[in-house]
Design a protein around this nucleic acid. Sequence first.
RNA 1: GCCCGAGUGGCGGAACUUGGUAGACGCACGGGACUUAAAAUCCCGAGGAGGCAACUCCGUGGGGGUUCGAUUCCCCCCUCGGGCACCA
Length: 880
Amino acid sequence: MQCTVVSMPAAYLQRSYWEDSRLGPRYDPESIEKKWQEIWKEEDIFKVTEGGAGRKYYLLEMFPYPSGKIHMGHVRNYSIGDVLARFLKMNGYNVLHPMGWDSFGLPAENAAIQNNIHPAKWTFDNINNMKSQLMRLGLGYDWDREIATCAQTYYRWNQWFFLKMYEKGLAYKKLSSVNWCPGCSTVLANEQVEGGLCWRCESSVEKKTLQQWFLKITEYADELLEYCDKLDGWPDRVLVMQRNWIGKSTGAEIDFPVTNSERSIKIFTTRPDTLWGVTFISLAPEHPMVDTLIEPRKEDAGIREFVERIRKQGCDERTGALSEKEGVFTGAYCINPLTGLKVPVYVANFVLMEYGTGAVMAVPAHDQRDFEFAKKYGLPLKIVINPLDRTLSPDTMEAAYEGDGHMINSDRFDGLDNRDAMPAIVDYLEERGIGRGVTTYRLRDWGISRQRYWGCPIPIIYCRSCGTVPVPYNDLPVILPEDVVLTGKGGSPLEHLDTFRSVPCPDCGGPATRETDTMDTFVDSSWYFLRYTSPNMEDGPFDTAAANFWMPVDQYVGGVEHAVMHLLYARFFTKAIRDIGLLECDEPFKKLLTQGMVCKEILRCPTHGYVSPEDMAEDKCKVCGETIERGQIEKMSKSKKNTIDPDRIIGRYGADTTRLFSLFAAPPERDLEWSDEGVEGSYRFLNRVWRLIDERLQDISDITPYDGAQPLDKSLKELHHLVHRTIYKVTVDIEERFHFNTAISAIMELVNAIYLWEGIGEDTLSKSVLREAIETVVKLLSPFAPHICEELWERLGNESLLSKSTWPSYTKDALMREEVTIVVQVDGKLRAKINIPTDTPQKTVEEAVLDNEAVTRWVADREVRKVIYIPNKLINLVIR
RNA sequence: GCCCGAGUGGCGGAACUUGGUAGACGCACGGGACUUAAAAUCCCGAGGAGGCAACUCCGUGGGGGUUCGAUUCCCCCCUCGGGCACCA
């Protein structure tokens, strides 16, 4: 039999509170929130159209992957967005604030394999659940614009874009060495490999050579880089990461002829000024000329073995800066085209085929890697750049000199500053036809083929006679078949599904097969913000007029983890779509706010590892009784068992409290440390606001808020001015700084002041001032805690919806103080404070100050040598 | 190694954009009121040291500097977090 006593205390508490409450009903978040969410829905208050009143504002938060349940990171992200949405709406903007689902992806497949449920069903169940969770938070979205990327109506346009890009040569297939994640059984783009590990499952990534589809993001490398300078609404660190990722460098390509051969090796260098210091050449093991060069020495097993071994190494083994430099002499030589000197050709493990030309001219005197390599294999150093303050010598150098200086041992360039010499040397190379100035990028083309089922099919057909044939536009969409069996083994199920795979060739009608790879899900999220502008468009991906009206997104809000991947891809897509002719704007996101993570202390049991707070009783593990160690504050994650379920918090305190806390505990861009007591505090504050209005309701019902017309006495003026200063502060904090935490604290101060205010009388004037104060509190708080405010607004006797009303404005007059506190310093040290009418002239202030005992004590009979006066703020008497 | 960001009470954080009262607001804590009592609520207190007190000194990671005055600007160093990392 089940015991029901457990629920007693809570019920008891509620009842006793009810009895104590003399006036109105107690604050009951659950019923209030439900009530207003329904009313908002009926009134359709978040619906927007292009024809709406006010200036357009496109506000967007990164859409979620429908994993099943929202987490605190979502709560934070979307609370930030909702505050802005409601604030902007009250300020008269026409706010587009949509929501949708990034709903293709691996977890759906994994769930399907584990639980025998179809990915589509799993995904749509999750969407339904998460949608109701978001609604429960009271987030104001125009749900009529909801999109799901796994819907045919959406992904068909992925395919359309792909075909457009294919036509323009921006989508192409090539055989190349790619990143293979064994955990996800699929290929990954370079951006999706973090430190040699898969960004999603942290498996060690392997190299595989496969036929893959690529999008030519490198075509836009220069523009993507250039526009980084124009994105002044983006955080610097994100721009820095993007610039680093694009990795533009300028230098020269130079051909080194191979001796006894017709061929030459093309190298890339950023330091043409060190050309005279080249003492050998290093090739990547994958370099196509390696096999030819070592041919004459093929009986030397050591060479081939070395090359084979390095080629097999995974990227994490190869690329670690710690790993030892290794190489082998190929037996071949080539000629430095400038000096005519013969230098040996090596294969070296640290040279990457993916960058530059896969071949490097080695200048051990001026490059640390070459230096280490040369020392190891006894190769000579040749100094060609000398620093200004000393003279280098090959025999005593302990490290390469990579700095600037004067050129030496470099023929006609001797004596020149090396920086100045670089362009001259490039010109010289070009004149003589042995090299040319070039620019290279670290950015690679975006490999989008995924060997997975739950994604958008790539619209390509392979025909034995016609070759690679794009699916005709009329045949779109290529529908992802649902009658598949997912086993998790033997590759993508599409490969084995003959009804999908076999297809007549669109050109010749002969037997052909479909591409069975699907697209990287980052393709889906690269243009979703455009689809929101016309989510039901059937003749194209989006309506150009609507997109041009709404774009760019004025404010984008999301996690910094997408700094390189999503944000770079989306920028690329925007530019490509512009060049297809569908869009006018160059950049998708005008301003970007990257919010911090939600963190919480981790708990560790010496025998069980991470434990959740529920598994702990009085610092002891419930299972084994060991003392629990309190660990560091870390990002909430299931594996560390330090998550908080938003549903639980909403259930206990309501959506308003949950939102308020997540906004109050830290400014948005910083990490937020979860605190149960802090949530309690936010709840207490809302109760305090509720009671404030409850207690004063009788005084101020049927009273019109003070409008500034009649003159006020001191006490009334104080409150009135505080109200206006608060409006100013909260407005600035929200719109200019996104510092919601300080905005909320300013509202708290106002509430505290109203509680302590004793200026209320029987007269209408004082009541009207109080009414102004209270209505202002409710309005200012409403973007943060919309439900309780809407309810209080109604209880105050207002008939229209608060959500439809306007943001309070402040008057300059009311911001002025009549009396100011002036800080009095003597020699820069605080010695007194005096209250004095605003804008008192310096002379009068000086007189008042020198009349003050606390000041004169410090001045004594010494001479005041200087007086610094900051009007209405500070006076400093300099004695020394 | 390189590039960002940060370091402030017992804790989360304010003030930094424009040098001008350091510690707003909240949490935790202490005291009081209400209550038979507790909870809730309301009011008050609170950086540290010394002092009965008035008050004084110290204090924003450490050390220098500029200034009448530095948490804020400059230089050097330490610690933590993040990103990149043999990119030629």
